[in-house]
Design a protein around this nucleic acid. Structure first.
Lengths: 339, 339
DNA sequence: CCGTCCCCTGCAAGCGCTTGCAGTAAGATC
DNA sequence: GATCTTACTGCAAGCGCTTGCAGGGGACGG
């Protein structure tokens, strides 16, 4: 492997000058810089990240903590983070928090403390107090996407407002018997997003003076299949059927659409369905949704962490609640209430 | 941040002994080891990966190259890799090869050459000659999953055999008019899996003495929507309809099932559909498939790279073609040909 | 023509570990 | 009891960079 000394020798300068020329820190005359760059290129020199990190204290590496890798939302956010970071020359090291509690603990107790990263992005994880504390102890910039955490800088989307927007859309179409598919209460213990979406739903209903019937709520597990079953229960009951369903995620909403089809209920003629997220399959299923642009969320998180790094200003945690954009995307799964 | 010196002082030994006690390399008496471990724990010491890497040349970090992060197959394999690697205390740094060609080049020309990783896993990427060469120049263990590459150690599943198995299943059920949904030829240029699956299909048909009608092939793009459209074309044509479809991926197969439903064609009564992959949605759609266990593929790749690292033996590239397991999973989307 | 200032460059001291080598003491061998 | 081993530990030299500091001009002003 070629080292900085060889480049220095070839360019006829000291290693200090090579370092400065290639990193852009400190003064180097234009001709010298050019000689160094030529030498480096001809030798195929690439700086050793370990040596550079040790000497400088900068790693050019961001740690990303993800609860699941194989769920659409998280992998999409991750994808946004990865492309934005790589564009700026940063590496990213991945910390996946599987179901295994012991392993999760070791991420905070060991992995992250190896000084391998300059900053951390945590995607939609409800962090425990101790975990939050561990993160703060790292003394590194941390950006959390999702669950607002008063002790960390967070990028959040206003879940209540999103849910209100979705519900208002249904109300504006004339619907009154609106059901809601959300998460079961025990889910909420460490994952508050479904609760907030439910609150938004209830607020919008209350604002419109429409009573939200408790029987029109069904819990599910945020999968297509879960949404399917919840919708089956909702639509298969004797008595009056809801004319619309606000579903707390697109995947569950797709399940609901499939359930309706199976029951011979036409969407949107007999039933309107709206989801939340902006899932890639939404277009195919013609699903009306409130998009939260997860890819861009990842990019924004990457930009935010780089901004903190480059400003050097370890700004006090400033939450920006509800700052992430969202947008109603009307497709074919919602329609006016038929008389 | 606490350093090794503090631990040494507290334990009353030299830093050399601390290093040996904590890393398990070299001899340390049991009582000394215990004192060191106690001291380290009480100070919350975690070794600095950069310093350790620089001194030892080992990073305890594996690079993973992924073509897409937000596609089910890749993120599932990645998930398997991540959990297996973290279990062994390894970090993983992610190199995402977006569509951007320039960025892709920089992964091989710069990112990977920073000496940040001890080994590389490449997931289902058809690597160009120059890229392969770059990887070999790294002089690190490399494991490629997927596309067999004679110059790298690869873990592959026998795509031809999988396709034969799927096709045989349909043939055994009595089907003769079997269509195939695969990839369009231009896709194949840098992605040979679809071609191999098609070959397996044709072989199985030929072996059974059944002519594979060219009109019964439809290309698609490996998405649900693509499969949907391909099936629409296949099933909407005037004339005799196929009684079964072998689809080259589960996602496309799901699309095909949805298309059939929309056309009022009953699955499996009027049409059998079989896919390949083992997609998580397969169960929900009752899709018969040939599972290739992507999660376990990732785990095996992780194990393989660690084995190479720990043996130290930079074994010559040994491809193990067709060594990865696959299995026919019969669910509800295939059935005997009705008379 | 000399002093100042500003660029540019090199020197050399680390960054926080790991590990070859050497030294010590205790146990083993005869 | 002398000599070898063997097990353990410490010393100190790096690993390949970065960067504070200082020195050497050239430009410029007086």
């Amino acid at each position: 492997m070629v080292s900085i000394d060889e480049v220095a020798r070839l360019a006829g300068v000291s290693t200090a000058t090579v370092s400065r020329a290639l990193s852009g820190r400190g003064q180097v005359s234009a001709p010298t810089r050019e000689r160094v760059e030529t030498a480096a290129k001809s030798l195929g020199y690439v700086v050793s990240s370990t040596a550079s990190s040790l000497a400088s204290g900068r790693t050019r590496n961001i740690g990303v903590i993800v609860p699941f890798l194989d769920r659409w939302f998280f992998s999409t956010v991750l994808s946004g983070i990865a492309s934005a970071l790589m564009r700026r020359g940063y590496d990213i090291t991945l910390y996946s928090l599987t179901a295994d509690g012991e392993q999760r603990r070791s991420v905070f107790a060991d992995f992250l403390r190896r000084r391998r990263v300059d900053g951390v992005v945590a995607i939609s994880i409800e962090l425990g107090d101790e975990e939050t504390e561990r993160l703060r102890e790292l003394d590194l910039p941390v950006i959390a996407i999702g669950g607002p955490n008063p002790r960390l800088t967070t990028l959040t989307v206003d879940d209540v407002a999103m849910a209100r927007l979705a519900t208002s859309h249904l109300l504006a179409l004339g619907h009154r018997d609106i059901a809601h598919i959300g998460a079961s209460p025990e889910f909420d213990i460490d994952f508050h997003i479904p609760t907030r979406r439910r609150q938004g739903f209830e607020q919008a209903m209350a604002d419109a003076g429409v009573p939200a019937h408790p029987a029109l709520f069904e819990p599910a597990d945020f999968t297509i299949e879960g949404g399917f079953r919840a919708a089956q229960r909702l639509l298969g009951r004797p008595g009056a059927r809801p004319t619309a369903i606000f579903v707390a995620s697109d995947e569950m909403a797709i399940g609901a659409i499939l359930a309706a089809r199976e029951l011979g209920i036409r969407v949107p003629d007999d039933l309107s369905v709206i989801g939340i997220d902006g899932h890639e399959l939404g277009e195919f299923f013609r699903l009306t949704t409130v998009d939260q642009f997860p890819l861009r969320q990842g990019e924004r998180a990457a930009d935010a962490i780089l901004a903190e790094l480059e400003s050097g200003a370890e700004a006090a945690p400033h939450h920006e609640p509800g700052r992430l954009p969202f947008e109603l995307i009307v497709r074919g799964s919602t329609g006016a209430l038929s008389a």
